[in-house]
């Protein structure tokens, strides 16, 4: 028996929108402490890790650990039928090959049930090692999205360089080059507007902008984004989901031949 009631149902809608273009099918792993998802994109260059802890749910019941394979495109179609203010409940029964999404309007005058077929998914489970990162940049998520979008109109890849001067995003393409530098800025009215650079050692890495732009679909989930980099390790782009968990995207760097 599985029953999860999320008053802020829009959160689940936003989570799905942030990952559905990267991952087609994925196993959702439910346990008593919350649910998680880990999946690589089809080209095996990026990895998505999602965690939503049980504390964030108004009601959370999971009698035994269970894994449900879902097509994220289909799940997104169903969740789009929920209103932004709706309460969303996920229900499942042991051994069933379906999952039910229930949408309740805030005034309880409309209640909808959507039953979705589950699927068997073979997925390799990867251990994500704890790493000491050379540099961790925390910045407004909207600013990061703007930079990725702007640079993608010039080039295909972004070089992210962190020095004690700041963080530099650079690209080059047929029409020219672009460099955007952000300096550490903690003297802001709201903490979420700050750019904070923690640097142990300077680092410079190259990534495909196509993936970075895909990650920024998670922008509505969080006012800030954290970018953690170490040479030869996948970059971690993390959007924290207030009080509940996170969506993390890992992307392999582009290497010189």
């Amino acid at each position: 028996m599985l029953e999860l009631r999320l008053v802020q149902g829009s959160l689940l809608k936003k989570v799905l929108e942030s990952i559905k273009d990267l991952v087609n099918d994925a196993n959702f792993d439910f346990s008593s402490s919350g649910f998680s998802l880990q999946s690589m994109d089809s080209s095996h260059v990026a990895l998505v890790a999602l965690l939503l802890k049980s504390e964030g749910f108004e009601h959370y019941r999971c009698d035994r650990n269970t894994s449900m394979g879902m097509n994220l495109g289909n799940m997104s179609k169903m969740l789009k039928c929920a209103g932004n203010d709706d309460i969303i409940t996920i229900k499942g029964d042991d051994g069933s090959d379906t999952v039910t999404f229930m949408f309740e309007s805030p005034t309880q005058d409309k209640i909808a049930d959507f039953e979705m077929k589950l699927m068997d998914i073979d997925s390799e489970h990867l251990g994500i090692p704890e790493a000491e990162y050379h540099a961790i940049v925390k910045m407004p998520s909207a600013e990061f999205a703007r930079i990725c979008k702007d640079l993608a109109s010039i080039g295909d890849t972004v070089v992210i360089s962190v020095t004690k001067e700041g963080v530099k995003f650079s690209t080059r393409g047929d029409i020219g080059t672009a460099n955007i530098v952000l300096r550490q800025n903690t003297t802001v009215d709201k903490p979420e507007d700050a750019t904070v650079i923690e640097m142990n050692e300077p680092v410079s890495m190259t990534f495909a902008l196509r993936y970075m732009n895909s990650f920024t679909k998670a922008t509505p989930l969080s006012n800030t984004v954290t970018i953690s980099m170490s040479p030869d390790l996948p970059v971690v782009v993390e959007y924290k989901i207030a009080e509940m968990g996170y969506v993390r995207f890992y992307l392999a760097p582009k290497m010189e031949e």
């Binding site: 251990g127 090692p129 392999a252």
Partner: peptide, 14 residues
């Protein structure tokens, strides 16, 4: 340039 396979950065679990 080539994209480094992301698996190199992770441990494959059974």
């Amino acid at each position: 340039s080539r994209i480094q396979h992301i698996l190199e950065g992770f441990y494959l679990l059974d």
